[in-house]
């Protein structure tokens, strides 16, 4: 199968990836091939099988409600592409 161009564009939009025309084309066949391969799962009846999200039977991993000193602002902003007055700066939203 191949993914339609529309599907590729929709998924790329959800993933915030600006794809070139060539990338779109390649991905529609590559993703199609992978999904073809994945399709073999359909042969396996699993209606009665409980989905497995965690391999180990773990639950209730909690932390006590004890505050600790936050990080220094300079350190938290040191990697920011752009910052202003202690805030992260982003281009206009609309």
């Amino acid at each position: 199968m191949t993914l339609s161009r529309q599907e590729v564009e929709h998924v790329a939009m959800l993933a915030r990836l600006k794809l070139s025309e060539e990338e779109k084309e390649r991905l529609s066949s590559e993703l199609g091939a992978i999904l073809d391969y994945v399709e073999r799962l359909e042969a396996l009846p699993t209606a009665e099988v409980e989905p497995l999200a965690h391999v180990l039977p773990m639950h209730n991993a909690f932390r006590p409600d004890e505050p600790r000193a936050p990080f220094a602002r300079d350190e938290m902003l040191a990697n920011a592409p752009q910052a202003l007055d202690g805030l992260f700066k982003v281009p206009r939203i609309l």
Binding site: R16, K18, A80, P81, V90, P91
Partner: peptide, 22 residues
């Protein structure tokens, strides 16, 4: 937004996301 590469040529948020990640 907070770290890593940013495409500084993008002039709005949606384009910035898309081209930074691309």
């Amino acid at each position: 937004v907070r770290y890593g590469l940013r495409d500084e040529t993008a002039d709005n948020l949606l384009d910035m996301y898309g081209s930074t990640r691309a």
